[in-house]
Design a protein around this nucleic acid. Structure first.
Length: 418
DNA sequence: TCTGGGGTCCTAGGACCC
DNA sequence: TCTGGGGTCCTAGGACCC
């Protein structure tokens, strides 16, 4: 099997922030989720203080105060742009690259078998660090699952020096024996419980499991995971990003909403945003789902409502999407609940030129939306908007600690004094 | 007495991922 | 006061067809 590498940015969001704010170096730092709800990226110093992944912000408050932890709202334009730069640096190391997530990239190292993989991986880490300022770890293995696992080991255990090579079978066996089965890529809490129920508690145990047994316990997915752990590649590198299947815009509200009107305003805004994503990729949608629900963490009556509508003809027009989302959410809404979150999901996507023809419906001209997108790109999102969005923002999320758009907005580019 | 069987398509829901 | 958001894949089961 030709080796595969997985490169992963350490504490990626925190590292992005540190590149542009030197005061964060060596400090405990947290990046919060949307709505400042919980911790989603933690520096090593913050982890050492006991900050858990996904821990709610309100519970962290005493710890933050006691230790002077720096807290930041998430800044996705910055992280997306840094991710692009990391992948630019990696492109020089292999012609076959899969950008798997915002902070992880797989590299195909076919034809590199004779080389010193460890030295190559260290060179790669140094280059990414020099070009972007982002620290990384590298996992190497004969399959994606093993590369992923090597990466996790390298990250958890500093003795590896940032690179863990599982192409060697003896090293692999030792590592798998020591690793809890729940740490394997593709084994979530539900599958972990099932595996533990039949006495499989380590990655090595899963690798040794009979394929039929694995399939019965999980699905074909678990069977593949077990095969990959044995070094048998079942997952190819996806060199071209797959066509998108759906677009979703969902948000928790900054405060609970009881009345219908602000909820309609919120989903109109979400539908508008979803339409922008669609148009940016030249797509149209054939189906829209809008949902709303109460806060499951709180006492009191709970309600989860959702409606789906066909979009005929298929569309990416903000007016059509906002109208359909409004109708769906009006039908799903019930009086007397404190709604905490809503969302709009678009499915059945096609390229705009490939819509099925409809004998009776005349598709909208897209000139208006092009003009709206151009105005909003120049003067800011929401300069031109669908009226049902309104101008209040009872639902707008919290983001109290947002850093500047250092790399994507001219006004916010950092200044360097000579 | 006995009441087919195989195939496709669609959807909802579960599980997992970052 | 206060617990994210955006995806993918798989399966079961129903509807429908001949």
């Amino acid at each position: 099997m030709p080796p595969v590498a997985l490169i992963d940015g350490n504490d990626f969001y925190v590292s992005c922030e540190r590149v542009f704010d030197r005061r964060l170096a060596g400090m405990p730092v947290l990046v919060l989720s949307n709505n400042d709800g919980c911790a989603i990226s933690r520096s090593a110093e913050a982890k050492a203080l006991g900050v858990g992944m996904g821990e709610p912000t309100f519970r962290l408050r005493p710890l933050v105060r006691r230790h002077g932890i720096r807290v930041l709202s998430s800044n996705y334009p910055l992280y997306g742009d840094m991710s692009r730069r990391v992948n630019e640096a990696l492109a020089g190391f292999s012609p076959a690259v899969e950008a798997y997530s915002i902070d992880e990239t797989f590299l195909d190292l076919a034809g590199f078998d004779g080389r010193d993989l460890w030295a190559y991986a260290q060179d790669l880490r140094a280059t990414v660090r020099r070009w972007t300022g982002i620290p990384t770890c590298v996992g190497l293995g004969p399959t994606k699952t093993l590369a992923k696992l090597g990466n996790a080991v390298a990250k958890k255990n500093p003795a590896f020096g940032g690179v863990c090579d599982l192409t060697d079978e003896r090293v692999r066996c030792a590592v798998l024996r020591a690793l809890p089965v729940g740490d394997v890529w593709g084994v979530g809490p539900a599958t972990r419980r099932k595996l533990e129920g039949v006495g499989v508690t380590t990655a090595g145990g899963l690798a040794a499991l009979d394929p039929k047994h694995a399939r019965r316990l999980g699905t074909v997915v678990l069977e593949r995971v077990a095969a990959e752990l044995r070094g048998l590649a079942c997952l190819d590198l996806d060199l071209l990003p797959a066509a998108r299947q759906g677009v979703a815009v969902t948000r928790s509200f900054g405060q609970p909403l009881h009345d219908l009107a602000p909820v309609v305003g919120a989903v109109a805004a979400f539908a508008t945003k979803a339409g922008e994503k669609l148009r940016a990729q030249g797509l149209i949608a054939g189906q829209l789902t809008a949902f709303l629900h109460t806060d499951r963490h709180r006492q009191g009556p709970q309600h989860h409502g959702s409606r789906t509508a066909r979009l005929v003809p298929m569309t990416a027009d903000a007016r059509d999407l906002a109208a359909a989302a409004g109708r769906c959410v009006e039908a799903a809404y019930r009086q007397g609940f404190a709604y905490a979150k809503a969302g709009v999901i678009l499915d059945d996507l096609r390229l705009a030129g490939q819509a099925p023809l409809d004998l009776f419906a005349r598709p909208r001209s897209d000139a208006l939306m092009r003009a709206v997108d151009a105005i909003n790109a120049r003067y800011g999102r929401g300069t031109v908007r669908v009226a049902s969005m309104g101008f209040g923002a009872a639902w707008s999320p919290r983001a109290a600690h947002r850093s500047p758009a250092y790399t994507t907005r001219l006004k916010e580019v950092p200044r360097v004094r000579a």
